[in-house]
């Protein structure tokens, strides 16, 4: 099974639109994974039947037993995350700040602090018309998105024997969730847009991907909205030796399709044709 992740650097460039359309048109056995666990939208376009649901536990959280606490303040003194607060001599944990390091538990002379599992989201496997889909929901405010991405990928990896391609809808950015997404994949498709910020973010995400052994492909969405920046993206790709496999025009049909919860390739429009051409180029490169 080959693994392809659709990523972007900048958010909102059309990752999910492209992923959903590819999932619709690729004539191979597919497995799907939505690694944008903070804003997971692939299922809106490829709704599925729920196969399994599991709780996701992130890093532990510390809990102070008020009956045992001797109010010495060692926990507050040693916490580097400002996660312990004191009010009128009562010490308590600020859940959103606690990173589960266990220092407070270690330094507490009264054994009043313990580390407890923290429910940080849910992991789902669904059966869609286009193959099994692993996805997740991170609890808002949780600090474990990279770990959750790893879990989603592991679920999808179980289908590797029965599939030709694992297609991953990735997160924006270049941080923890993105790095978890791209580690171990064969190739990434970076979807960008012709804006100064699109180009700047493309540059950053490509640099991060260079640190992994993977092939990098680029597609430009809404490329005709600012042709001058589009040409700068073309120049960037050729100077970096990146293959520009697709350019998708601005097309109101894209918004219509999203509003109807269908992949754009289910409609007859210029953007759908452009995604088909994108896949023609990409499938040759990936030998699929």
């Amino acid at each position: 099974m080959k693994r392809l992740a659709v990523i972007s650097g900048k958010g909102g460039t059309g990752k999910t639109m492209v992923t959903a359309a590819l999932a619709e048109i690729i004539e191979k056995d597919l497995a799907l994974a939505d690694c944008d666990v903070e804003a997971s939208n692939l299922e809106l376009l490829h709704p599925g039947e729920l196969i399994s649901k599991e709780d996701f536990y992130g890093l532990d959280i510390s809990v102070i037993d008020q009956d045992v606490c001797i109010h010495c303040g060692e926990c507050l003194e040693n916490c580097r995350f400002d996660a312990v607060e004191e009010k009128d001599g009562i010490y308590s944990i600020r859940a959103l700040h606690c990173e589960g390091c266990g220092v407070c538990e270690y330094v507490c002379p009264a054994d009043a602090v313990s580390m407890k599992p923290r429910l940080s989201g849910e992991i789902y496997c669904s059966g869609t018309g286009r193959g099994p889909l692993a996805h997740a929901r991170l609890t808002p405010g949780s600090g474990n998105s990279g770990l959750l991405v790893n879990e989603v990928k592991k679920r999808a990896a179980r289908w590797s024997n029965m599939c030709d391609l694992l297609l991953i809808d990735g997160p924006p950015g270049i941080g923890c969730p993105l790095i978890s997404t791209v580690s171990g994949v064969d190739a990434v498709l970076v979807v960008t847009e012709p804006s100064n910020s699109g180009l700047s973010d493309l540059t950053r995400v490509v640099e991060v991907c260079r640190g992994f052994r993977l092939r990098i492909f680029v597609a430009v969405n809404r490329y005709d909205l600012e042709e001058s920046v589009f040409h700068r993206i073309e120049d960037f790709c050729s100077s970096e030796d990146l293959s520009l496999v697709g350019k998708i025009p601005f097309d109101p049909a894209v918004l219509d399709a999203v509003r109807r919860n269908i992949p754009v390739t289910k409609t007859d429009c210029p953007a759908a044709d452009a995604v088909r051409e994108l896949w023609l180029n990409l499938s040759k490169e990936l030998e699929l």
Binding site: E38, G141, S142, G143, S145, P171, P172, G173
Partner: peptide, 10 residues
């Protein structure tokens, strides 16, 4: 802020 709902946003 960055997009999302995880620790950088908090």
């Amino acid at each position: 802020s960055s997009p999302g709902i995880a620790c950088p946003v908090i």
